[in-house]
Write a protein that binds this DNA or RNA. Structure first.
Lengths: 308, 308
DNA sequence: CACACTTACGATATTCGTAAGGATT
DNA sequence: AATCCTTACGAATATCGTAAGTGTG
């Protein structure tokens, strides 16, 4: 037995029209072919569904019984197929992304806006989280992908490089280095440095690439917004990657690039589960991110321009 | 697009097993053939439903979405097909029959008992009604068939002869004709005759075949049970067909056949709608009636034996 | 290298359209 | 005679199983 949507559709068409020739036309079939579909259905069910003479076509008692359920059934089938088509065409769907706070606040919203314009039916979710929580959410399938740095354990994850993010010195306008065109790490000796928490990828990038022992760590906070306030209050300076510079557009703050030879960089990646395909909507989002990645990397110039 | 039950079943099998070879075996297909079914489904939906490497088979996001609805859908399909099979096999169904009161009380219950034993799942309905209401119910499709006589208007109806029913004289044991082996209509002159109502087929048969002007009509009632009482009270005699004789098994009543040459008969038919097929259950009932018709026709002997 | 999915390919079955057949009004 | 469903039949398509190919652990 193998009931098909085509048979159901033909049955309903004939039950409505009570006329093989018309029902066949509406089904885009020749009348004999249509007849064969009905016959195959009757044979599959083992019972005649229509009484037909050349002048009259009518449902048999069993036909009526079938007719009670068939429309709902076909409707369910077509609803399901329709849903799938909507997913494929991205008229519907969901994309969940995890991103480091710096990206979640700065670059990603612009991507979200573009994506929403392209696919207004797709529901977007954004989880701003520190590096490790980002990776956990990807690994556990809570999000489709993350935009983050590399973590300690990247097993089961697949990464694609997005950009490299240079670091900058943030200081108050009256700081001794405020008007340098660029600074060197050696110039920062004995400066009071305001750090982000240890869960932060910014902090981790810094620790991995730099010897900060010559600097004094004055404070450690969790949010960049807080850093702004602390610097303004004269409590120290900070080193942050380019992606976060929009936090520091302030008349009394200065942003000074680190010189080439003491350049520190944070590498950012798009992270997703290994060997797992993305949903159609997520794949479209992924594609958009990769296409737009030039708008955040190589990284520095653009952000400087934005700030000026 | 033509979704089929086979595709759904294969999909669910694979979603459960996550293994083409095993799922193929359980589907009684070779693995490549099974693979082709899955591919045809994916092609029909325009989206991959399974991520497969040689070592792992897993649902894609779209596959999961499909999986949310597919089991219910397949279940509905199989439920419908199952229902149809039950109707065909007469494990379920309905049969509604209309019958003249004489048959509804006497012969038909025995048929119902036999039918119920054969098909305990089929629900039987019996409408005992006078001739014209019987025919109306058939014509309007309220019942599958009727067991009745011929009416004035038989258009749209199809009849099959069931039996002929002889008439008998019913009188009290102390009546002058009580011990005759048979009586002639002429012997009934000036008798007081108890009639049934004009809607009754018994009355109509009598009127059509006999000149009753020599007899006095003393009373006219609607139910045979009442006739019994009236005869016992000495209010007259009655003429009734053989099928009703069980009403008159009473020590003080006598049943006397009418002689051959003044024989009156009531013809009984199975009546159904013209050009309309019966439901499977009704067809089985019809067949049983026709097979058992010898147990009521030619009519007389048996009833006489029963009465003795 | 062994297991597992895909591709290739020939055989069979199904489906389709055209044309002829048969029944009903 | 006209209408309309069924049957007949050849062509295109789909489905199946066997066997070879490919890729992954």
């Amino acid at each position: 037995m193998n009931l098909s949507a085509r048979q159901l559709k033909a049955f309903l068409m004939l039950a409505e029209e009570r006329h093989f020739t018309r029902a066949a036309q509406r089904s885009h079939l020749t009348q004999p072919a249509f007849s064969a579909v009905i016959q195959s259905l009757e044979e599959a069910l083992g019972v005649r569904l229509f009484d037909r003479s050349t002048r009259r076509v009518e449902l048999t008692p069993e036909g009526w019984h079938f007719y009670r359920s068939a429309p709902r059934l076909l409707n369910d089938i077509e609803a399901l197929v329709g849903e799938m088509r909507e997913l494929v065409s991205k008229r519907r769907g969901k994309v969940a992304v995890a991103a480091l706070p710096s990206l979640a606040a700065g670059w990603l919203p612009r991507i979200y806006a573009k994506f929403s314009a392209l696919y207004p039916g797709v529901q977007l979710t954004l989880h701003d989280a520190l590096l490790e929580p980002c990776l956990v959410q990807v690994r556990e399938g809570e999000v489709d992908m993350a935009i983050a740095a590399l973590g300690r354990d990247m097993s089961g994850l697949e990464t694609e490089s997005l950009c490299e993010d240079r670091f900058y010195l943030i200081c108050r306008g009256d700081h001794r280095l405020a008007n340098e065109p660029e600074v060197d790490l050696t110039m920062l000796e004995n400066e009071g440095l305001i750090h982000l928490g240890r869960g932060s990828s910014i902090r981790q990038s810094l620790m991995a690439q730099t010897d900060l022992s010559k600097l004094r760590t004055t404070l450690e906070v969790d949010h960049l917004a807080t850093v702004t306030g602390l610097i303004l209050a004269g409590l120290g300076v900070s080193l942050v990657p380019g992606m976060t510079l929009f936090h520091f557009r302030h008349p009394q703050l200065r942003i000074v690039p680190l010189s080439r030879h003491s350049e520190i960089r944070r590498k950012l990646y798009l992270v997703r589960r290994a060997n797992r395909s993305l949903s159609q909507a997520a794949a479209a989002f992924h594609e958009l991110v990769m296409r737009e990645r030039s708008s955040l990397g190589p990284g520095d110039q653009m952000d400087i321009r934005e700030m000026s």
